[in-house]
């Protein structure tokens, strides 16, 4: 038998060696650099304060995402409608909320009482608690990004699908809900997943208005026990867990939508 030798790829080996070396250097640096208390850190990781912060982070992200999706559909439909004012309104919203830093938006919502003392009959400070301000700020911002994702997804659906739906006597709302959006979902799920991962991490910004999330908790505890770097790492680890779980969920959702039913483009 003649042996078939694959091409030697020395650059591959060299590159791998560099990556391993860097990893070792980093590990040694962390180990030597700062005396991290392993036991104390583990205790903080699952401490009641941290778990409460984790819970708030999750609730914040989920509520903001729900607002973002609803707002995104509304803005995308406005953007694609024949009405000029609706299109401009939607475009203006996206321009404004994507064009300014989220941190600034959070600060404005968190300090709304300085702008308006009352919202309707209510005192702004009682209505706009830090948590409510956080949800509003994150949700409205998320809406601007989701609008663009939804619009791209809807536009990707063949125009003939809408024609066929309308010809069967469906209203445009029914056609959107039953026919267009389910197909748009294919193009939406991947960027929307990435956007949700961004949102999960962005929730940490609400610590500037004491929104009660993971990072807020970490910052609140650290003056008491002076383990600020450990607390930051503890929070970071929780964010990693959340984003990892989301990525896995996103992977399965993409696979499910890409497979089987979705017809014309799907392979056997």
């Amino acid at each position: 038998m003649v042996r078939a030798i694959p091409l030697r790829r020395p650059w591959l080996w060299l590159g791998s060696a560099v990556v391993v070396a860097l990893a070792v250097v980093l590990a040694v640096a962390i180990y030597r650099g700062h005396d991290i208390h392993g036991a104390a850190t583990a205790q903080l990781q699952f401490g009641p304060a941290m778990l409460r912060g984790l819970q708030i982070t999750i609730v914040l992200a989920v509520l903001s995402e729900i607002i973002g999706i609803a707002l995104g559909i509304l803005l995308a439909v406005m953007r694609l409608s024949p009405g000029t004012v609706l299109r401009l309104g939607s475009g203006f919203y996206v321009w404004l909320f994507r064009g300014t830093p989220l941190l600034v938006q959070i600060l404005i919502w968190g300090n709304l009482a300085l702008l308006f003392e009352y919202i309707g009959p209510f005192k702004t400070t009682t209505l706009m608690t830090p948590f409510v301000a956080s949800v509003v700020a994150l949700g409205l911002n998320e809406g601007a990004y989701m609008a663009e994702i939804m619009r791209a997804g809807i536009v990707a659906v063949d125009r003939g699908q809408l024609d066929a739906s309308l010809a069967l006597g469906m209203s445009s709302a029914l056609a959107l809900r039953r026919i267009v959006l389910p197909q748009a979902l294919r193009a939406i799920v991947s960027p929307a997943g990435n956007q949700f991962i961004s949102l999960l991490k962005a929730t940490s910004l609400v610590s500037v208005i004491a929104g009660g999330d993971l990072l807020t908790v970490a910052e609140n505890i650290s003056p008491a026990n002076l383990r600020s770097i450990e607390l930051t790492l503890v929070a970071a680890l929780w964010y990693l867990v959340l984003t990892t779980v989301t990525s896995v969920g996103q992977y399965f959702m993409e696979r499910r939508l890409g497979r089987g039913g979705m017809g014309i483009h799907a392979g056997p």
Binding site: D158, D163, A164, A167, G169, S171, I179, Q183, G261, M262
Partner: peptide, 24 residues
């Protein structure tokens, strides 16, 4: 639109491309 949908429901249409709903 409500009245239009009722009218359209009485008229069937078949296109050059079938435009079947691929997710159903």
């Amino acid at each position: 639109q409500r009245d239009l949908c009722r009218q359209r429901a009485g008229v069937g249409m078949v296109f050059e491309r079938s435009n079947l709903f691929p997710h159903l």
